[in-house]
Design a protein around this nucleic acid. Sequence first.
DNA 1: GAATTTGTGCTACTTAAGTAGCATTATTTG
DNA 2: CAAATAATGCTACTTAAGTAGCACAAATTC
Lengths: 239, 239
Amino acid sequence: MEPINTSKYEKALGNCYLLNNLDKESYNGLLSRFHEEKWPQATCVLNQEKWFHNFYIILSGRVRMYQVDPKSGKEITVFLLAKNDTFDLFCLLDGCEHPVFYESLDSVKVLTAPMADVREWLNKNPQHYTNLLNYAGKQMRMLENFVSDISFIDVPTRIIKLLIRNVKEDSNNLDLIDDLPNKEIANLIGSTRAVVNRHLQKLSKCGAIEISRNHVRIKNISLLQRLLELQKLRNSGQK
Amino acid sequence: MEPINTSKYEKALGNCYLLNNLDKESYNGLLSRFHEEKWPQATCVLNQEKWFHNFYIILSGRVRMYQVDPKSGKEITVFLLAKNDTFDLFCLLDGCEHPVFYESLDSVKVLTAPMADVREWLNKNPQHYTNLLNYAGKQMRMLENFVSDISFIDVPTRIIKLLIRNVKEDSNNLDLIDDLPNKEIANLIGSTRAVVNRHLQKLSKCGAIEISRNHVRIKNISLLQRLLELQKLRNSGQK
DNA sequence: GAATTTGTGCTACTTAAGTAGCATTATTTG
DNA sequence: CAAATAATGCTACTTAAGTAGCACAAATTC
């Protein structure tokens, strides 16, 4: 395993939180511990030990982190990770095992280093903890929102929010989630395939979206936004 | 506002994550920025700016952090904070505002300091970030569990898990949650007063717990544990 | 101690979400 | 190209959770 060419990744990792504002020396010191790995599409690495001993930065492709209910087999996607995201953040933060699953949605390129090495680097360069704290804060906010969304909001509205959250501002295209089957969309909002399909059909019939196998396309973003507003208002007369 | 007597709090704050393994100098440097405050029971400070500008460590009493659904008025308690807990962690981590509510359940004593001071201290003493990372990791795990619990598990089981999680090992007494009205229990698991009451009645009738106004008492902890196991097994034949 | 507020325990009802099942179509694999 | 697999689009059904409403009791306030 030869040392990686750190300069090769400077552009690719420009937006990775962990490498924010690093001086040349820190940057090379950290990156030199990593090497590149490729995973084929739709791989689920069952061995959870792995996340405990290795740390990953995504170079390209999507990885979902999910939990499985052993009782029903139901799954929920906790984080949908993409370029510049890292895992496992939980282990990196507190050094404990994290019983969770990871699965690649595309063919994926990652940089990986032993977890212990990354933790050691952080210990030796504590001035760079701030980057990690920021990222942890953002992820916590996402989790907190997930909790309140599931508890407050019905499935059709969660779908609309998911769609709106993922449209690219310029193109109206769906980023990250435009090529998922209904089952994966269900996992993202904590519901089931059949129920999601039911509501996608309605959105399709009213002209907000267009659906085909493995694809959802936004047809009328402002209609979606109006539907979301309507949902927020409905029942607001309650105490 | 006179500087606090830092030695006074050494015992009280022995288990606060933020003060773990601090040398005398760091300890005093941090604590000297704080002063003590008292809040009466059942106070809800509506001014959310406050959490953004001030940081709090709980000395005694309980504080719940919760979200409110503006549509229905429904609430969900995200964290039930007690002695040695701190807030607002989200702001401390990433320096952004955090639109959330805090409310005291008891008469509460806190130590408080300007958020900027705490962040500045952390910047100057980066070797102590580890404590914060650990705590953030634990809180993230709690949030992640909350997500999967709400999405996988039915209300009666969530109640049982809440009870089991909160029994003191030695005494069988409920810590933290033994004096809450049904409505507060509902907020803790993301349900409603009426539904929680329905299931508490069942647990009461089968002899697992005893209920009275503002009180739940464990009568048969091993029965609760057996009920939890039963729930886990039921339907496990599904694919 | 009268009046108000808060919490409980219940019945009856509504509804969204989930479940089961299956036919149809698209895609992949051998 | 045949067979297997994966994804969809339905219908019909079940169910847990939530809603509404109210009587009653306990606690608090004036």
